[in-house]
Structure formats: structure tokens, C-alpha cells
């Protein structure tokens, strides 16, 4: 469960976030939708605690990301945008490294890593060094790495970027699996169709503000647009008009 309450963040003169609030409940997939530069990545970075908000609060399962950032990170599996692997380690070693860093019990690490490799269907290249992996293979390993400690909350920053149809499909299946396991999945995207197809709740973000936050159905109703893309454009125009 992720609760974001009125977050502000500025980088020098650039006001990246100007009061972002939304909830991402357990057992649901929440999509953070917005044009490039809207503040999606900044919001997610605040949530996985590599950035500190200037104002506002964010809680992961009730743990404040500023007051107890370590505790918040324990409850998160994060896949930052363009996450890189260690090219001299095999996929399995990359995953095991994160498992160890997360403090998993020594005896169960091997089984845990094997389990996540199976879940993500990456057995074929699990024991190859990751140097020269395709974008799809890399994303899968990075995702496996982020999920190895069984986090309740999963934050994915543009996970489908650079993936082909097959890889996107299997990622979508995985996200649905996580939802049925009762996890809280929050992912960002600038691809409308993807968000519409997958998300229970959609948070449209533009110019550092939440333009609209509802289900796909709710957004259509609120904007009076039948087509979600039109609704998206409409919502963004509302914010930018302010």
C-alpha cells in the first residue's frame, strides 16, 4: 500500500513536482501516466527514497519514506528506468547479489533465486554473463533482482520501454500474477494503451501535478470523452491551462 500526500520537489529553479497525491492500494495495479517530463520518474524516485521530497509525505505500508527510508526500502522492490546489470556477473549472480544485500537468509538464497528465475522464465540465460544481453533479457533480470526479496510493493519505472511484443506480453502476465498475489504494483508509462489494458487505477500526471486519478471508466466519465486517449489529452490540458 502506497500513500502519497502532496509531494513537492524542485531541482534548482525547475519545479518537478508541485503537489502530487494518490493512493496505490494492495491487490491492485496503479498506472502513473503522463507525458515526458511530467514528473513520473521523480515521483517514483521519491518513493524508493533516492530523492527526498521538499514537502509532503509518502508512506509505504505506513512507513514514512523520509523518516525511515531504510524501512520503506525494505517494503519495496524497485525497477528504476534503464536499470543496468553487472556485465561480468551471470544473471543468476546478479540476482543473488541483491538477495544477499537484502539480507535474505544464506540457506534460502539459492532456492529463492531459482524460484524467481523460474517465475520470470529466464532459465535459458540465467547462467550466462549479462554482457551482451538484449534489452528484454536485461529488463527481466533487473526485475527478477528487484523481486527477489518478495517485496509487498513493486515500483516499476517505464518497464516496457524498449521491449518487443513478446517481452511486453510476458511482463504484463507477470504484473497480473503479482496482483493476484495481493501485491501493490505501481508502474509508470507514457503509453496509454498499455496503462488502459493493465491498470485498475490510473493516475494522470502532468507538469508535476496530478491531473486526474480514477479507474479507466471513471476517467472517461469525468472528462466526457469516450476514447481514453482523448480523455488523457483533455486531462492534461486542464492542468496546463492553470
Amino acid at each position: 500500500m502506497i500513500v502519497v500526500n502532496d509531494i513537492h520537489k524542485a531541482f534548482g529553479a525547475v519545479r518537478a513536482l508541485r503537489g502530487v497525491s494518490f493512493d496505490a492500494p494492495d491487490g491492485k495495479i496503479t498506472g502513473l501516466l503522463g507525458p515526458n517530463g511530467a514528473g513520473k520518474s521523480t515521483t517514483l524516485r521519491v518513493l524508493y527514497t533516492v530523492l527526498k521530497p521538499d514537502a509532503g509525505t509518502a508512506r509505504i505500508d505506513g512507513v514514512d519514506v523520509v523518516a525511515d527510508s531504510l524501512g520503506a526500502r525494505q517494503r519495496i522492490g524497485a525497477l528504476p528506468h534503464g536499470a543496468g546489470l553487472y556485465p561480468h556477473l551471470t544473471a543468476r549472480e546478479n540476482i543473488a547479489y541483491y538477495a544477499r544485500l537484502c539480507g535474505l537468509d544464506k540457506n534460502c538464497i539459492e532456492a529463492k533465486v531459482a524460484g524467481i528465475i523460474e517465475l520470470l522464465e529466464i532459465q535459458d540465460f540465467a547462467d550466462r554473463r549479462t554482457k551482451g544481453f538484449s534489452q528484454g533479457q536485461r529488463t527481466k533480470v533487473a526485475l527478477a533482482r528487484a523481486l527477489v526479496h518478495d517485496p509487498q510493493n513493486i515500483i516499476l519505472d517505464e518497464p516496457t520501454n524498449g521491449l518487443d511484443v513478446m517481452a511486453t506480453r510476458s511482463l504484463r502476465h507477470l504484473i497480473l500474477k503479482l496482483r493476484s498475489a495481493g501485491r501493490c504494483v505501481l508502474f509508470s508509462s507514457h503509453v496509454m494503451q498499455e496503462v488502459a489494458a493493465l491498470c485498475d487505477d490510473i493516475v494522470i500526471i502532468a507538469a508535476g501535478k496530478v491531473a486526474m486519478s480514477a479507474s479507466a471508466e471513471g476517467i472517461r466519465n469525468q472528462t466526457g470523452c469516450d476514447d481514453l486517449e482523448d480523455a488523457f489529452v483533455h486531462a492534461i490540458k486542464l492542468v496546463e491551462a492553470e
Binding site: 524508493y48 536499470a83 544485500l101 537484502c102 526479496h149
Partner: peptide, 14 residues
């Protein structure tokens, strides 16, 4: 440069 710093910092370690 490799892009491995951000996921590393997002882990529950100091």
C-alpha cells in the same frame, strides 16, 4: 554510467 547505481541505492541497505 551502467545504470546500476539507482537500483542499488533503492535496496534496503545503507
Amino acid at each position: 554510467e551502467r545504470g546500476s547505481l539507482e537500483p542499488l541505492l533503492a535496496l534496503p541497505v545503507t
